[in-house]
Amino acid sequence: MQKSKPELQTEIKKRIAVTKFWDKVFLITGLLSTLVGLVLLFTLMADLFVNGFPRLSYKFLTSFPSRFPEEAGILSAWVGSFLVLLVTALASIPLGIAAGIYLEEYARKNWLTDIIEINIANLAGVPSIVYGLLALGLFVNFFKFGESILTGGLALALLILPMVIMATREAIRAIPNSIREASYALGATKWQTVQSHIIPYSTGGILTGVIIGLSRAIGETAPIITVGALTFIAFLPTSPFSSEFPFISFKWLLDPFTVMPIQMFNWVSRPQHEFQLNAAAAGIVLMIMTLLMNGVAIYIRYRFRRKIKW
């Protein structure tokens, strides 16, 4: 039997009401979960800020660590972090992009590339200290790079290499096949296609991955300690510029170093309360560095998304 019109109407209304109720339930649950995360993060930052902010000053950024907490600063730490990260970027970007392009555009899809793909994903999940051990064996003991900036940078480069490779592959995979075909149909070679299409159109995604990798690397402590970074260092690496020919020097690569998180760790483990405040202040600096890098990543993604929409 067919229902009369008004009856049908009320039934529809009832169903809509029920659906709307569940809509609300989900909305509130989602909101609460988000809030928990936000509140935690906020408390953490507020705590760091309250403790560390009074210690932040120009002097703090330009002083070496010291036995006296009021005189101690993070100069050697941030310079160390910066140089290590520079090595990390210079090593991981070309390697990661080349590997990603090879795997996506050149390698034949077969069981071997499948295994490589699975292993790269697994490598991204390997605990960072394992990379430290690898770097210790490879760069310190085998290549004899010493407990140096070069070794530290390369250890972190290994750590983020899988991330760079995966970001590259993902960005390349997002390029529709019709673009490749258009290029090949015009007589382009593989390299011409890679050079003028694949690389430019995936740059946004690749850079985002690289920066997120680097912002993870900047906070890493375990592998850096493993390769033998110092915890107390009161001098800067050799300047990369020299007054004599050829005016550029790479000696800094083999100098000992420390990085921000190690400096923090060193201060936290001291009994005096003042050192804890120094650690908090260094924490703020590290946090700002990380947030800035993430901000740059978001900006790059936004810029490229606007230009290229598939």
Binding site: S178, I179, E181, A182, S183, A185, L186, S196, H197, I308
Partner: peptide
Amino acid sequence: FQKPNPFPKSIYENVAYGLRV
């Protein structure tokens, strides 16, 4: 092709690409 597939480049560069190749 069936679906228009211009490169995400300028109009000029799209047409010039075959020549650049």
